[in-house]
Design a protein around this nucleic acid. Structure first.
Length: 653
DNA sequence: TGGACGGTTGAATAT
DNA sequence: GATATTCAACCGTCC
């Protein structure tokens, strides 16, 4: 009997150390092992991926390929540019494959894809081996031991984990690898459709990833950013297992840091160096195993002489949160990523709700503008032009570097949703998906639900102040001086609220506080705050209180069919007007019009807002655009400029 | 059953 | 300046 001919399919496990699936492949003692990566059009065209995360992925692939070659000079990572669903049947035949091995992936899309691939393998007579390795526990096992329910708290994860048993010790990297065997591709490439191409906005060159199966040189090489047509890479953070293991070594060498780490005490304002480990993107791409991290930390903690920190605030506690979100996603599938039809997610009538495909019950990736002012808030938030230096600094760091501290993510997420803009958390999650180099769908979705108080967390009256909160760590405002350089000369007294600085001082410090964020290149200008924070906070808290009182969840029939509006006052915050409407929080009208300008640009008090809301006119057959007529006026003016500010926002509204 | 309690990371004020 | 208390009051879990 001939020896196995094995394809090892790399996906979210771009490493050689502690890979249970790779070990399973090698345990077959194969005649040949093909280490492959399939260039999935889902990632190229459908998921939101900015140039920085692309670069990180390419780093990981290059490093892995070199590591493979070090173990066997005939081998490397073979990148094949076709969708796995169409490629595998041809590949099985061409390479006479007997086994396909890969690491389990419980993401909603990945499950669908892998089910298809397994079925194709079965049809071709290829044996499939799938091993869990991405998380501390198999997410499906966590769910099973949590009474079949999504894991929604750390105590549930701990209880379920206890039943599953001890977390596995890491497996050493292989010392040798079999030859890959014949790599001829004597078959036609099936080019995937690039419609819709959600990543078009990430490119300024020609996207050439599918020109040929084995790449432009026919050598299966990792593509370049240029080949993918992507815009400039700006992050200083680089990927790859070699870097990841070095970073881990450095962390572990500092025993006190490792053993006494408490996440809530780390400073979101710290840079060079940051206060946390920066290992999250390595976890995402699998260039570092979470069990490797867990046990290296745990062994330091066990030997530590002082008082070590405990989960959930300790380093290992961070991994439990990750597993919790994976467990929630594993149980809920696609519905985890949206409010609509999600039994665990509270329904809040946020502004800028997602469009819903009523056939599938899934969000489309596009959204509706129920309120022009909220859309301006959202775009100014996204591009770091809110006029709140703490928020703008974080958003600029996110856009440029692809990483911000966890508490910084809290600050901007609270601000966009329940603590300022009252904009749908799904909008924020999409921006993070686009820009974060460590974007992990489960964790990102879960954290946005947490911060928006729609799941996992409920204390919506605990609201992050963009002025007071950062001062807990950075009274001098050094973070602001780095990421909002317009304000670098401002006195610390005004650094978090520069609009309060006297005009004479503003001139002296070389930056005037004026305008609405349209001047993006002029460093002598910084915008006025886009609203009065305490006013907006009151409006939001009232809105949350009201929505909590009504108490709907995403799978409520009234949410599914749109009759939830019967339960909300027409003047409540959000697209609440009328007794009937489209499903979810969808709205029929998109653009505000016909409002007169007045010169008053001051934010209204909560009382004034209430009064204006009562006065606002209703037009028959035409939904109200915003709850406050005066705010509409201010917005109409902003909106015209807004269209010029963000010319690239083609996929929005 | 209902009341106590915990919930990784608030803010303002008092000591 | 650091730490404790109060603020107003949410949810889900647990006994």
């Amino acid at each position: 009997m001939s020896k196995p001919r094995v394809i090892y399919w790399f996906r979210t496990d771009l490493r050689l150390h502690d890979s249970p699936a790779l070990k399973a492949a090698l345990d077959l003692e194969p005649e040949c092992l093909y280490p492959i990566w399939t260039w999935d059009p889902h990632y190229v065209y459908r998921a939101r991926v900015g140039p920085n995360r692309w670069q990180y992925l390419l780093d990981c692939q290059n490093d892995l390929s070199q590591s493979i070659t070090r173990l066997n000079s005939k081998s490397k990572l073979l990148l094949i540019r076709e969708a796995p669903q169409t490629l595998f049947p041809k590949l099985f035949k061409a390479w006479n494959v007997t086994h396909l091995v890969f690491e389990k992936d419980t993401d909603a899309y990945a499950r669908e894809r892998d089910e298809q691939v397994v079925a194709l393998a079965k049809k071709a007579g290829v044996e499939v081996i799938v091993k869990t390795g991405r998380t501390l526990y198999d997410p499906d096992e966590l769910v099973k031991h949590n009474h079949g329910k999504p894991t929604m708290s750390i105590s549930q994860v701990q209880a379920a984990g206890k039943k599953i048993g001890e977390i596995a010790r890491p497996i050493p990297a292989p010392k040798e690898l079999p030859d890959p065997g014949n790599t001829d591709l004597h078959f036609e490439q099936e080019k995937p459709s690039n419609e819709p191409d959600i990543n078009a906005i990430q490119r300024d060159g020609n996207e050439a990833s599918y020109l040929s199966l084995a790449g432009p040189n026919g050598d299966f090489a990792v593509p370049t950013i240029e080949e993918l047509g992507l815009k400039e890479v700006t992050t200083p953070h680089r990927g790859g297992e070699t870097i990841a293991l070095k970073m881990l070594d450095d962390i572990i060498a500092d025993e006190t840091y490792t053993a006494t780490f408490e996440k809530p005490k780390t400073a979101p304002t710290a840079f060079e160096p940051q206060a946390t480990t920066l290992l999250s993107p390595h976890m995402h791409f699998g260039s570092l195993s979470c069990r490797e991290f867990y046990w290296r930390v745990q062994d330091v903690v066990s030997d530590f002489k002082g008082t070590a920190s405990q989960p959930p605030t300790s380093l290992t506690g961070q991994l439990l949160f990750r597993d919790m979100y994976f467990g929630a996603q594993a149980a809920l599938g696609y519905s985890f990523g949206q409010t609509y039809n999600n039994p665990q997610c509270r329904f809040i009538p946020w502004h800028l709700p997602s469009k819903i495909d009523t056939e599938s019950g899934l969000i489309t990736g596009d959204y509706l503008v129920d309120n022009a002012e909220a859309d301006v808030y959202f775009k100014r938030w996204k591009h770091g032009r809110t006029g709140f230096p703490w928020i703008d600094g974080l958003m600029r760091q996110l856009k440029d570097e692809g990483w911000i501290h966890h508490l910084g993510r809290h600050a901007v997420a609270c601000f966009l949703t329940r603590g300022g803009c009252y904009v749908d958390w799904e909008r924020g999650a999409e921006v993070f998906e686009e820009w974060l180099i460590d974007h992990e769908a489960a964790c990102n979705i879960g954290n946005w639900q947490w911060l928006s108080c729609t799941a996992f967390f409920a204390q919506f009256y605990r609201c992050y102040s963009p002025i007071a909160f950062p001062q807990k760590w950075d009274k001098e405002g050094n973070f602001i001086r780095k990421y909002v350089p317009e304000l670098k000369n401002f006195d610390k007294k005004y650094i978090y609220e520069p609009w309060k600085a006297p005009i004479a001082d503003q001139k002296k410090w070389g930056c005037r506080i004026q305008g609405e964020g349209s001047e993006t290149s002029d460093v002598t200008l910084y915008p006025k705050p886009m609203f009065d924070f305490s006013t907006r906070r009151e409006i939001c808290i009232q809105g949350m209180k009201n929505a909590y009182h009504i108490g709907l969840y995403g799978n409520d029939p009234k949410v599914l069919n749109g009759t939830w509006r019967e339960l909300f006052d027409d003047n409540a915050e959000g697209p609440t007007e009328g007794e009937k409407g489209p499903p979810g929080a969808m709205v029929e009208c998109k653009d505000a019009d016909g409002h007169e300008e007045n010169g008053d640009n001051e934010p209204p008090s909560p009382k004034a807002v209430k009064k204006m809301a009562v006065k606002s006119e209703k037009k028959a057959g035409h939904k109200r655009e915003a709850s406050q007529s005066t705010l509409d006026n201010a917005v109409t003016r902003k909106k015209k400029k807004g269209a010029e500010i963000f010319p690239n926002e083609t996929h929005f509204g």
